[in-house]
Design a binder for these strands. Structure first.
Lengths: 218, 218
DNA sequence: ACCGAAGTGGATAAGCCTTTCCGGTTGGTA
DNA sequence: TACCAACCGGAAAGGCTTATCCACTTCGGT
């Protein structure tokens, strides 16, 4: 993955940049400017762009491991002997990741055009979710009308809460997520409005990403 | 409210601007540029800024009646003989307003620095909410640990869903809101994480507004 | 019909943003 | 030590944004 033949100073700067970007994106979200990342890394702006020719590539490099963790979280949840406990833990884990890292929340809900590799991880996570949900339904813990798209909606809702409350009320998301989880438990108390179609949700996220590209980039 | 002595053409342009801004802000949120509003109104950019010296003033003028409707919705809900039915209707009304108008969602969750008069309406709404909640609790329909801040969190969550799904899955919000409402019903199924303090939520929203003034939004 | 105040719109300022260019500096090999 | 490709950082290009300036036009009272 890493370029094999970087000069030692270049390799050091590359690491500084990644670390700085991790800090800045976590704090300010993907809306943070490249200049602010360079400043945090104590590196010239050109150095940053030589190593990562576009902001998108920097984002991909920074969030590769976060998206790995995201994909792994499903596997962990699937190993839980209690399907309901596994599902709840999974939701809380992902939402906590969103709360702890604004940039990750942006990547997950595609507020920013995501690179291919991150995209793959997200789909991987989605496929795990499907199994997680089936398992919980089979155990009778999860309401029958629950769909994988509902989980995506939870991420979007949580992103809204995390964004709006910031670090002035940093644990607010836990309450909203807890309320939502309560409502997922079988049996449902009544019929729900239709779930969005998977295609529609995916298209919506794509569109948001593109719109953002148009607005922020060039 | 309106300036009393505007020349007829100026008055006409003012109306065109307001109408255009309503359309554009509803579609694109408050992140839409002043230039795009001027274009939609078929008016020069200078004309727009002469009538509304800052974007904030335009927003205030455009959303005055939406915020009136928002404040009125509480009154309507309080007149409902069934407290629970009134509360649910209120939540659905406000969330539908968010879904129908991105700009309104931004104003409500203060993604944008709000003008004084809109601010007043929002506080007015908040005070009504408090009574609405007390009434529903007294009737035994609403869980005892529910707080007014929970309703604010609902708006934030809903804004996240509406923002992310856009018009590719325009009814997704109904499902999330329905799930949340289910979880509000008394008795709660278990203890919840602490609600955020009113002050904290308010400060969080203010901070978000200031940050947005500095940055861009959407 | 005239005339001044009021109104108009395009050019422009000033400030962000991402990305590129270029002259000076340095790592590491011979 | 001496060399040069690789690397560096700041300046600048070109794109957005909000907001202002100024030469020209139009309304509306006389």
């Amino acid at each position: 993955m890493n370029s094999p033949c970087l000069r030692s100073d270049a390799e050091r700067n590359r690491a500084r940049i990644i670390a700085a970007a991790r800090t800045v994106f976590a704090r300010d979200g993907l809306g943070a400017s490249m200049a602010s990342v360079a400043r945090e890394a104590e590196v010239g702006i050109a150095t940053l762009f030589r190593r990562f020719p576009t902001k998108e590539e920097l984002v991909a490099a920074v969030f590769a491991d976060r998206m790995d963790a995201y994909a792994r979280a499903v596997a962990v949840a699937l190993e839980d002997p209690d399907p309901w406990h596994g599902l709840v833990g999974y939701i809380e884990t992902v939402c906590e990741m969103q709360a702890a890292d604004s940039g990750f929340a942006d990547v997950l809900t595609m507020t920013f055009p995501a690179a291919k590799c991150l995209e793959d991880r997200r789909r991987e996570g989605y496929e795990g979710i499907v199994r997680l949900i089936d398992r919980a339904k089979a155990a009778g813990s999860l309401r029958e009308d629950f769909t994988p798209e509902d989980l995506v909606l939870v991420y979007m809702a949580n992103a809204g809460v995390v964004n709006a409350t910031g670090d002035a009320a940093p644990d607010s998301w836990r309450r909203v997520v807890a309320l939502l989880i309560e409502s997922f438990r079988a049996p449902g108390r009544g019929p729900l409005p239709d779930a969005p179609e998977p295609r529609a949700i995916y298209r919506a996220m794509l569109r948001a990403g593109q719109a953002c590209r148009g607005a922020q980039e060039r």
